[in-house]
Amino acid sequence: MTGLQIAFLAIAAVTLASAVLVVSSRKIMHAALWLVLALGGIAALFATLEASFFAAVQVMVYIGAIAILIIFSVMLTRRVMEDTGPQNTRYWPAALVVSLGVFGGILFLFLQWPGFSVESRPGLEQGDLLVRFGQALVSPDEFVVPFEVASILLVAAMIGAMIIARDPSRK
């Protein structure tokens, strides 16, 4: 068991546990805080995969912006610290069987794939990887159209949220 595998197992356990706690917390504010831990765990998983840019961006965007947005929207509900009781439904054994079945099915499919047990290495050095990513984003036969459409999408999201959240009393 190499150090990397131990680290992966530990980080994955933390992420899964906090994800389960997100949906099963009785107080909605605690759920938001467990979500922050789950997102941090994902960032750590990116780091173990040597995807440094995505690890740092995960913390910067998800924890630094989206988690704050989620906490703010949680604050919009009045009874933030109210104990809302146990969060599971009556049919949770059936849901458990279905999800285990889906997981087993996907695992079976992956084991049929010959590439599953081959370790993948990126073809370029880390610095060149980011340069290649940048070139791919703006090169005409690669991803420039989604790049520009993304900016239009961001502006649309901003305008839409402003219209929805606008105070109707303000003129």
Binding site: M60, V61, A65, I66, F72, S73, L76, L154, A157, M158
Partner: peptide
């Protein structure tokens, strides 16, 4: 909320 949202858009 609006300030945080505009920050999110510019962050992305």
């Amino acid at each position: 909320y609006i300030y945080t949202l505009v920050f999110l858009v510019f962050d992305v």
